[in-house]
């Protein structure tokens, strides 16, 4: 038995003017939505990747450039490289090279300037030891670069007047050299 409320609903659903979606229409609609959705999602992911890469490259370059600029300022006016020392064991240049993640130089004021790469924190630290004539030695420590993946200082010259610097930060790598004006 149909109730009074159910009767008009049944009549409404049987109304020939109202038409539901067919299976074919649904499939086509879903296909279009999936196709457009895939393109849009892919576009978003691609842009995010680009953005990440651009940021990493920019940050890496900036960190390395700033660090090398700091080291350049110190080394250009340094007298000699104390560590690493080029090895005197071989006549051939190939084996004179000596590299380390630390660099120690002495400047013209008698101060000892050191650079240490800390692997655990990925930081490059600069320490300057100033020795006044009538007082105790004073050390000043400063972090000059963070997030570095690798730092290598190379001294291949027996005259100890040229330092090669190699740095890695994210996708950025840079090789540079400083010639000490100690003559």
């Amino acid at each position: 038995m149909l109730t009074k409320t159910m009767k008009p609903m049944l009549l409404l659903s049987l109304d020939k003017n109202r038409k539901a979606f067919t299976l074919l229409e649904m499939i086509i609609a879903f296909s279009i939505i999936c196709f457009v959705g895939t393109i849009v999602v892919r576009w978003f992911i691609m842009n995010r990747q680009y953005q990440k890469r651009v940021t990493e490259l920019y940050d890496g370059d900036t960190i390395i450039r700033n660090a090398i600029w700091e080291i350049h300022k110190d080394l250009k006016t340094s007298r000699t490289v104390i560590y690493p020392r080029a090895l005197r064991a071989f006549a051939n240049d190939e084996f004179n090279m000596s590299s380390d993640s630390k660099l120690v130089v002495k400047n013209f004021e008698g101060d000892i300037v050191s650079y240490f790469y800390k692997r655990d924190t990925k930081e490059l630290v600069r320490v300057i030891s100033h020795v006044p004539t009538d007082d105790a030695p004073q050390d000043k420590t400063r972090v000059i670069a963070k997030n570095l993946n690798s730092v290598v200082f190379t001294n291949k010259n027996l005259l100890n007047n040229c330092v090669n610097i190699y740095m890695e930060c994210g996708p950025s790598v840079l090789m540079d050299a400083v010639f000490l004006m100690n003559d």
Binding site: F90, D93, M97
Partner: peptide
């Protein structure tokens, strides 16, 4: 190749370049 040394070799005479 003589110009660069990208790895640490300090104190290791055998390793060289």
């Amino acid at each position: 190749r003589y110009l660069f040394n990208l790895k640490e070799n300090c104190g290791n005479l055998k390793k060289g370049l």
